[in-house]
């Protein structure tokens, strides 16, 4: 049996998340006597594809058909289904991110598979097949049984540490038959922000809440983010007020993130906010209200005025760096 991993690329490159997926698959393959095939769609150099073998792929199927550049969900899921069938895959693993969440449900239906999304660890058992995931936006965990022969899962970011294995790997071109009519979306315009750290990639995130008082007071946090190569985030009231873009909103209805370090300034920690950040490894809170719920989930805290503390922190970071 084989395990198929869809490894998304970002401008022709893989990220740590790609290696987490492959490593996760390799670990399951070892326990079940299977092999790992990665599927790559897009323009990725063979030297980049070979990096996947460092984490345990036996084979890479590459699709370089330009029609897929539009990230059409219908066409891409057809391609993944074709690869799964060609490989006789009984398990298909995707990232629990924008694209993975878009494709996995379609792939599961087409393969008559059972789907579980947002899996956070290796399977609890293989027979029956049980996996663990977060539910209620991080407020609880559930163990879920998949009652189908073929399984599709999406793996949450930062839930499996990549392990180097150094398999030998073959790279094969793969040309699934996907009709033009399956390409249903046309990209009219693409706007990319450059020079900023993506929230989904950031190992450190600096975040501000209502305690920042207005949209004009973010210079300090921006400077801190620059110093630490951190991503910028905010709480919901901040994006609702238009102080910051809604793309920076983290929380239950915004982005859900899991950085190594999350620093919350002037954020009280409403339960909806905590749902978006509670998986962070270390949480720091600075808030003038010592009763603020954010301190219940924080590892380190300062009760005080953000406008006093932020400049001091910036000085201390500069000192540490020098």
């Amino acid at each position: 049996m084989s395990i198929l991993v869809y490894t998304e690329n970002w401008d022709g490159k893989f990220k740590k998340f790609s290696f987490e997926l492959v490593s996760y698959a390799a670990s399951i393959a070892k326990q079940t006597g299977s092999t790992v095939t990665a599927l790559s769609i897009g323009n990725v150099a063979d030297s980049e594809l070979q990096k996947l073998s460092n984490y345990g792929t036996n084979k890479v199927l590459k699709i370089t058909d330009d029609r897929f550049n539009s990230l059409d969900n219908k066409a891409m899921s057809k391609a993944i289904v074709a690869a799964a069938k060609a490989e006789g895959a009984k398990m298909i693993i995707l990232a629990h991110n924008n694209l993975g969440k878009a494709l996995a449900p379609r792939v599961a239906v087409r393969l008559q598979a059972g789907l579980e999304t947002g899996v956070v660890a290796l399977p609890v058992s293989f027979d029956p097949f049980i996996v663990k995931k977060k539910v209620f936006t991080g407020k609880a965990f559930a163990e879920v049984k998949i009652n189908a022969n073929v399984k599709v899962i999406t793996l949450a970011q930062n839930s499996f540490e990549p392990v180097e294995l150094h398999h030998s790997e073959t790279i094969e071109a793969f040309n699934p038959q996907v009709a033009d009519s399956d390409f249903t979306t046309t990209v009219k315009e693409t706007n990319k922000v450059t020079g900023k750290v993506l929230l989904s990639d950031a190992e450190i995130v600096v975040s501000g809440g209502r305690g920042m008082k207005s949209g004009d007071n973010w210079g300090g946090l921006e400077e801190m983010a620059d110093l630490l190569s951190a991503g910028m985030a905010c709480s919901r009231p901040v994006s609702d007020e238009g102080w910051r873009s809604h793309t920076e909103h983290v929380g239950q209805t915004g982005k859900i993130i899991a950085p190594n370090l999350y620093m919350a300034f002037g954020i009280s920690g409403a339960i909806q906010h905590l749902g978006g950040v509670s998986s962070s490894k270390v949480i720091v809170a600075v808030n003038k209200d010592k009763e603020a719920p954010i301190f219940e989930v924080a590892d380190y805290g300062i009760v005080g005025d953000v406008f006093t503390v932020i400049p001091q922190m910036i000085e201390a970071i500069k000192e540490m760096k020098s």
Binding site: I302, G304, V309, Q312, E319, M320
Partner: peptide, 14 residues
Amino acid sequence: CKMVAEDNAKELIR
């Protein structure tokens, strides 16, 4: 939560 004094951001960074 480990608390640090308001005037001791240096300790927090440490």
